[in-house]
């Protein structure tokens, strides 16, 4: 079979990825611009990063976002992993169709609807709006993503190991902890990271469910962007892009290493 790429495919990919990356690249470049104008280059400077660091409201918002992200993604990972196990290992329990529908629906539901619905629910429950309500809201919609990621790993893993443990008298819950969880761990971590970035990124659901004193970073950026484009926003954007890129690359390395280890265990060693 021929290898290498046809010139047409290469052109398509080059143009496509240029379209995807050029705006982000320009944004990063102009965060180091001396001038206040975002479209005229006036020399290299890191002063906007200094201004960003001195902006207390921005730092507070970043801390709120980080707190919400850490708690909600952990909650989403626990709930999503449970949901994935439920869908793949519990057979046909009563109400499975409703459950599958509910767990996957947030993947495609418009955010305005989720945000509005959750806010009205919180008010009916008498919960005061703030960090807690945003955490619950984020956990609920990020749970769907964790479920899909963990579910696909649970379906592809070899069930014979679990069956062997149970045949030898290991109770189901301990089988899950000692056998299943270590095997699906990379998917669980990937799910956590996905939930975390979704939470960091979310503007619409947070705007609906938050209350006084719990302004998240996207809300803060949004209100500044509506007033006008400033290099300070470019600086904070660059920082966020850097953190997320590092996280994604780390996650993919973890995933690849675990795959390779698994590959070694499954396949006979290849001659070098």
């Amino acid at each position: 079979m021929k290898r290498g790429m046809s010139p047409i495919n290469l052109t398509v990919l080059t143009l496509g990825f240029a379209f995807l990356y050029l705006p982000i690249f320009i944004l990063i470049v102009f965060s180091f611009n001396e001038s206040k104008l975002v479209n005229v280059w006036a020399g290299f400077s890191t002063k906007w990063y200094g201004e960003m660091a001195a902006n207390d409201a921005l730092i507070d918002a970043a801390l709120v976002t980080l707190e919400v992200g850490l708690v909600s993604s952990t909650l989403a990972t626990i709930l999503g992993t449970m949901a994935a196990v439920l869908l793949t290992r519990f057979g046909r329990f009563r109400g499975r169709t409703l459950f599958a529908g509910m767990v996957l629906a947030p993947l495609v539901m418009p955010e305005v609807i989720i945000g509005l619905a959750l806010l009205l629910m919180f008010l009916s429950l008498g919960l005061s709006r703030g960090t807690l309500t945003v955490v619950i809201a984020h956990a609920t919609f990020a749970m769907a993503y964790v479920t899909v990621i963990v579910q696909s790993r649970l379906m592809s893993m070899d069930r014979a190991i679990e069956e062997a443990a149970q045949d030898l008298g290991c109770p189901p819950f301990r089988t899950f902890l000692n056998i299943t969880l270590p095997i699906i761990a990379p998917a669980v971590i990937a799910g956590w990271l996905c939930a975390f970035t979704l939470s960091l990124d979310d503007l619409v659901i947070a705007s609906f469910t938050t209350g006084p004193g719990a302004t998240t970073l996207p809300m803060k950026i949004y209100s500044q962007v509506r007033l006008g484009v400033t290099p300070e926003i470019n600086a904070i954007s660059t920082l966020m892009i850097g953190v997320v890129t590092a996280g994604v690359i780390a996650a993919s390395l973890i995933n690849r290493r675990s795959h390779r280890r698994q590959g070694r265990a499954d396949a006979p060693p290849r001659p070098a």
């Binding site: 995807l20 705006p23 982000i24 960091l200 503007l203 950026i221 954007s237 892009i241």
Partner: peptide
């Protein structure tokens, strides 16, 4: 390649939309 496709999708949606304002505006790039 898949990784490159996923990466922008992990980057903040708001930031990616914001990036276009500087490109598309009247005196933009």
């Amino acid at each position: 390649l898949v990784m490159m496709m996923i990466l922008p999708f992990w980057t903040s949606f708001l930031i990616r939309v914001y990036a276009w304002i500087g490109i598309l505006k009247g005196e933009g790039l």
